[in-house]
Design a protein around this nucleic acid. Structure first.
Length: 731
DNA sequence: TGTTTCGACGTTTTT
DNA sequence: CGTCGAAACA
């Protein structure tokens, strides 16, 4: 049994306990991916389970790919995974729904609305209900709808206790109606509809329950109610359900995830075997100590005892940079130094941050030095305007009732169909309770007679009608082409006939870049050319809608990775830099008042820290610019929780009080804030140093008769001097 | 109808 | 700082 020989006892137990419910509580770096892959391989190879009777849910498509690859590598037969259901909750549900669409009264050509599309629909719903966008924030309402769906609440069961909830419920109802008119589902619908399908259609539920002999769920702490219910319904049949999670790594509470699902699981499956994976194979003892110091301050958790036999390792570097540019420079200096010393390769390094906006300054540092880097997420490819336009066209070819896409491109490039015409079309369609496309069909005389009778005379002028009909004719052509051409061919034809290509290419440099992006999309679409023509477009659109940021992360090149702490979950790097450990950033200002939110911020920091195998850098700045203005920042409270024994570098704890003082009055004259008039320098003062140039005093204290001054320099970071020796001059 | 300009507003994190 | 929508113009 070579399959099991590389596993430690609890891992082995997790792999071989195949009957009945199993809950694995896996600390960071404890080899849970190994457990999952070995378990799948064990089931298939040793127990002879047919792969199509297995389902494994991962958190990202990327993780699904990794699992598929590594499991296959463990198997003797090369095509051993065939038919296994493997993917994210969203992609698995999308597939279920596509398969059962007809049985549950869903248009099988449904499109998936992303967050931007969803926001458009909320706004449309508000307009339809004559509600003021200014008064009712569409984003807030969208969040309420999304949360409701994650809790499996429909517009009818949505609880109303406040005025805003009353509004939200009404918008929710209209929103769902608009989605239905467009034959569209949003992300949350994928989960909710899948649950309702299983709950309400016994034959379908039976079918899946009988088929799915073994179910595995990764990152279980980040499941929401809908996802939990889905697992419960599917697992009810054979009860061979295996879930892996770590409540300390639950970082998606804001999207409905609830780590108490771990407790719920224990209640719903009281016979569940619980297996603890506590040995860490990733990090040094020092890093684990820091992680433990950090997380043990959380109240809502069960204490664990992580251990490693990797040895102490090097100390964690705490560093205060002057500002975010300096922070970037420091990172670059360290990466170069580590490489020169042979301590690490650039590809081993990761730079992590709380918000995507922070990537900018770091990127600039890389660009300045001409060092390549890999960026995960941020300015996502699929968020670019030209990509959304092109996809909107393709979505229309697949499902022309998609009103959001139709509105997006009906006048791009300009076709003399202005806002007035679209509004007229929209209200006409609304009176008929139909999609915009149905309106166009009526206008073209192609609609069913009874609908045409109901519609009566159309409200358009000759010129407007001509323009609309021109677009309609084009669209008809693309719909027909959609089932004969490959996705790439269809895209070519659309770009040509719509005039989009010519319109985009106005000769400017930016235009060239945009066009290159469109060509990139074409390359992606060409990957679906080999599928049957009637499936290719649907498959392409579905995958494009459900890709996540980390999915396009390429591990091959030897360049450092820039990513958010959220995106870092599940990954591992030799060297980790966590930037912006500052109050208001990590922990984020939105969580400062909320104890649960604060615990989640702490878990986020914990996730970041535990990604590091060998070296960890915790960075914060003296001042940081946000929204164009630069403001002093205070070191994160999390830094103060680290024991002095695990860190090297300047500990910010004692400087904190003074920093906040100076945060209040950055330009304060020197004398007013001096604790004693014997001090020459005081926080906020500008000074000049013979070698480092101009800088700003952060702290100044009396040290045995001499004055110790720490000064922040724009390019060199923070330095400490003795006033008697340093030759500092006030500027 | 299409283009430009100005002011308001906002950002956590993502499928 | 950047996006979005409304208002103002061509």
């Amino acid at each position: 049994m070579t399959l099991l020989s590389t596993l430690n006892p609890p891992q082995r137990q997790a792999v071989t306990t195949t009957t009945g419910p199993v809950l694995v509580l896996a600390g960071p770096g404890s080899g849970k991916t190994r457990v999952l892959t070995h378990r799948a391989a064990y089931l298939i190879q040793e127990l002879g389970v047919e792969p199509w009777r297995l389902m494994a849910v991962t958190f990202t498509n990327k993780a699904a790919g990794v699992m598929s690859e590594r499991t296959a590598a463990l198997l003797d037969s090369p095509q051993g995974l065939r038919g296994m259901i493997l993917g994210t909750f969203h992609s698995i549900c999308a597939r279920f729904l596509r398969m059962q669409a007809v049985a549950i009264g869903l248009n099988p050509r449904y499109v998936i609305f992303d967050s931007d599309d969803q926001l458009q629909v909320v706004k449309q719903a508000l307009r339809d209900l004559n509600l003021d966008e200014k008064r009712y924030n569409p984003r807030a309402i969208h969040a309420a709808i999304s949360n409701a769906k994650n809790e499996l609440l429909t517009p009818e069961t949505f609880p109303i206790t406040t005025h805003h909830e009353e509004i939200a419920a009404r918008v929710y109802a209209r929103y769902q109606h608009l989605l239905a008119l467009s034959s569209a589902l949003d992300f949350d619908d994928l989960l909710m509809r899948a649950v309702f399908m299983l709950r309400d259609h016994e034959p379908i539920r039976r079918q899946y329950q009988q088929r799915l002999q073994y179910i595995m769920v990764d990152e279980f702490q980040d499941t929401n109610s809908a996802q939990y219910e889905l697992v419960r319904l599917l697992a009810e049949g054979q009860r061979n359900v295996f879930v892996v999670g770590d409540e300390d790594q639950s970082i998606y509470g804001w999207r409905g995830a609830d780590f108490r699902n771990v407790e719920r699981f224990r209640q719903d499956f009281p016979d569940a075997k619980v297996i603890l994976l506590e040995q860490n194979y990733r990090s040094t003892q020092i890093i684990l100590d820091a992680a433990n110091a950090l997380i043990s301050r959380n109240f809502h958790r069960t204490p664990k005892k992580l251990f490693t036999d990797r040895g102490a390792g090097v100390k964690i570097v705490l560093h205060q940079a002057f500002d975010e540019q300096d922070e970037g420079n420091f990172i670059l200096d360290e990466i170069v130094r580590l490489q020169q010393e042979g301590a690490a390769q650039p590809g081993d390094c990761a730079i992590m941050y709380r918000t995507n906006a922070q990537s900018r300054a770091v990127e600039e540092a890389f660009i300045r030095r001409g060092v390549p880097y890999r960026l995960v997420g941020a300015t996502r490819f699929y968020n670019r305007r030209e990509i959304k336009d092109a996809l909107a066209y393709m979505r229309l070819a697949h499902n022309p009732h998609d009103d959001v896409s139709l509105r997006r491109v009906i006048n791009v490039p300009p076709r003399s169909i202005g806002a007035a015409s679209v509004d007229r079309l929209s209200s006409w369609a609304a009176t008929l309770d139909a999609s915009l496309y149905t309106g166009l069909r009526l206008l073209g005389g192609d609609a069913e007679p009874e609908l045409a009778a109901r519609a009566g005379v159309h409200p358009f002028s000759g010129r407007a009608r001509t323009a609309l009909m021109h677009f309609y004719t084009l669209l008809q052509g693309w719909i027909a082409a959609g089932s004969v051409l490959t996705p790439a061919q269809l895209l070519d034809r659309i770009l040509d006939e719509s005039g989009y290509r010519d319109w985009l290419q106005d000769g400017s440099e930016e235009a060239q870049e945009r066009w290159d992006n469109v060509l990139e999309l074409r390359t992606v679409s060409a990957g679906y050319d080999d599928l049957p023509r009637d499936q290719a477009l649907a498959a392409f659109l579905e995958e494009v809608a459900l890709v996540s940021d980390v999915d396009d992360y390429e591990a091959s090149s030897n360049a450092p990775t820039l990513l958010t702490l959220h995106a870092a979950k599940g990954l591992e790097f030799g060297v980790v830099f966590i930037t912006g450990l500052e109050e208001g950033l990590l922990p984020h200002s939105r969580s400062l008042e909320d104890p649960d939110g604060m615990e989640e911020e702490r878990r986020l920091a914990y996730v970041g820290v535990t990604r590091a195998a060998n070296r960890l850098y915790l960075l914060h700045t003296f001042r940081r610019s946000a929204w164009g203005r630069s403001e002093p920042s205070a070191p994160s409270r999390f830094l103060r929780d680290l024991p002095a024994s695990v860190t090297s570098g300047h500990r910010p704890g004692s400087a904190h009080r003074r920093m906040t003082t100076w945060g209040r009055e950055p330009q304060a004259p020197a004398s007013r804030h001096s604790p004693s008039n014997r001090l020459q320098f005081s926080p906020g003062q500008r000074v000049r140093h013979p070698t480092f140039g101009e800088g700003t005093v952060i702290t100044s204290t009396l040290m045995g008769g001499d004055e110790e001054v720490s000064v922040a320099f724009r390019s060199q970071g923070v330095k400490r001097f003795l006033a008697s020796l340093a030759n500092l001059k006030p500027v």
